[in-house]
């Protein structure tokens, strides 16, 4: 029969319409603007309308989510900025579109390069959000941000000041990763300390042997 397909199609939409309201009733007003409601709407059991009412409610971003990179700094005793970045340049080498520019700071006295960046530029309008810089930074310094609300009225180029964010922020957005990394750092430090201690002990032993 002609027209059957049409009616069937309309039926599908109607059912969805009804599903939405039935689900609304089932959730008794908690379907929207609550974390559970949102999780329900993006689960396998979602039925009916599943729109996320951005900006009033936002989909939680998963830990691994990556947008543009930022630099993590540790906070000193009285809040001063302790750069994790040593200006080693690895991130600028791995960056596929080559959008990281790093200037290594010079020691004001000796004019020798020191392990600190004096300028760090990321051209966000080139960055492809690939996350390779974060993956290969040996000092857990450059990381991928979760903040995606960065639309603006001009081109976006991030300089050192825009890039720096405290470690506490990083711990907050990526708890699993940061705990793992902190543990790894601690281990490495301990290993280093142990090695050093062993070496010193050896040297002491040798010195002792010599004097004998």
């Amino acid at each position: 029969m002609y027209g059957k397909g049409l009616l069937k199609g309309l039926g599908v939409t109607l059912k969805r319409f009804a599903d939405t309201y039935l689900d609304d009733i089932k959730w008794m007003g908690k379907r929207y603007y609550t974390a559970e409601g949102l999780a329900h709407r993006s689960s396998k059991d979602a039925k009916g309308i599943f729109t996320v009412q951005y900006p009033e409610e936002k989909l939680p971003v998963p830990e691994e989510f990556r947008y543009v990179p930022f630099l993590v700094y540790d906070e000193g005793e009285d809040g001063e900025i302790l750069n994790r970045c040593t200006a080693c340049g690895i991130c600028s080498k791995v960056c596929p579109p080559q959008c990281i520019w790093i200037e290594r700071a010079l020691d004001p006295k000796t004019q020798r390069p020191i392990q600190e960046p004096s300028q760090f530029i990321i051209d966000v309008d080139i960055c492809m959000n690939c996350g390779l810089c974060a993956e290969f930074c040996p000092f857990d310094s450059i990381k991928m941000d979760h903040d995606y609300e960065i639309a603006s009225y001009g081109r976006t180029v991030h300089h050192l000041d825009d890039l720096l964010k405290p470690a506490s922020y990083y711990d907050e957005i990526r708890p699993v990763n940061s705990t793992r990394e902190a543990a790894a750092r601690k281990e490495a430090e301990e290993a280093k300390a142990a090695k050093k201690a062993a070496r010193e002990a050896k040297a002491a032993a040798r010195a002792a042997a010599k004097t004998d």
Binding site: G89, S92, I102, E103, R104, Q119, I121
Partner: peptide, 12 residues
């Protein structure tokens, strides 16, 4: 790649 102008002297 990597290009030389990126590090250690940023010529942005």
């Amino acid at each position: 790649k990597p290009f030389k102008s990126r590090w250690p002297k940023a010529e942005y």
